[in-house]
Amino acid sequence: MLANLIGRFLQGIFVLFVLFTVTFFLIKALPGGPFKSAEKAIPEHIRAKIEAYYGLDQPVRVQYFRQLGNLVQGDPGLSLRLEGREVTEIISQAFPVSLRLGIAAMTIAMCLGIPLGVVAAWRKNTLMDYSAMALAMVGICIPAFVIGPLLADQFGRRMNLLPAMGWDPTDPSSWMLPALTLGLATGAYLSRLTRAGMLEILSQDYIRTAKAKGVGSLRMLIRHSLRGGIIPAVAFIGPAFAGIISGSVVIESVFAMPGLGLHFIKSIEVGDAPMILGSVMLYGTLIIIANFLTDLLGLWLNPRLRASR
């Protein structure tokens, strides 16, 4: 187990290194640049000075190793879009927002999606199944940029219950709508995947035997098949969670949330390398952790795999 853990850790480091290298050269290939994308053009002689100040005039090789060195020390450097601000400062302001929003949304999604999927699989091809899945389809077909504004308009403008925008860490009502919007869509995916996974298990022999003996209750179903049945859902949750907590642009735009997503998009627009690399490294780390945990969870859910290792 320990060897396994160390192995995964080393693999993770390697993944991050490859990720850094590929992203670095992708950014270099982007048209424009942090001081070429100003709305009012910066005169040539001045731009050259600015780029020299930030070392952007040096050979790409030098920039690559400097940036790599910075990241190894855990500091991506200074943002070029929000000129001079430390990337760590920007991320440390935005990440808690995305994290909290992600946790709230994931909780909603799991509380909604998994039970819905289980119930639908249990009463397969009945009215209950159809209505549960129709509900899920509504969540899938109506995109967040439609549901979000609808919710904000209803609860914000019409009923004046919840704020239509903004973020107040001390007031949960300010993140209820964004979390709900995000949670509904994710929950819809989860319910479809749970149902599918459950059906695969339900059609296997040992469950069929149990059923034949007349134990078809919901409790039996959960005890015998939930473990195996949520494997597809779990494989989906890991990356989805990492994606959500590293920023969701649509939600941030619709509710004016100060999360990571908008920073990321904006820094790509102007080719702000330190900020992009900082965010990508953060997201990469989250993905590695999420997928590692998913694999562990998979082992736990599927005892047969464990035995063979």
């Binding site: 504004p149 403008r157 704020p163 239509a164």
Partner: peptide
């Protein structure tokens, strides 16, 4: 659009 909604919601 968000800004307008926020204004009309009294923010």
């Amino acid at each position: 659009y968000t800004e307008t909604r926020a204004f009309l919601s009294g923010q």
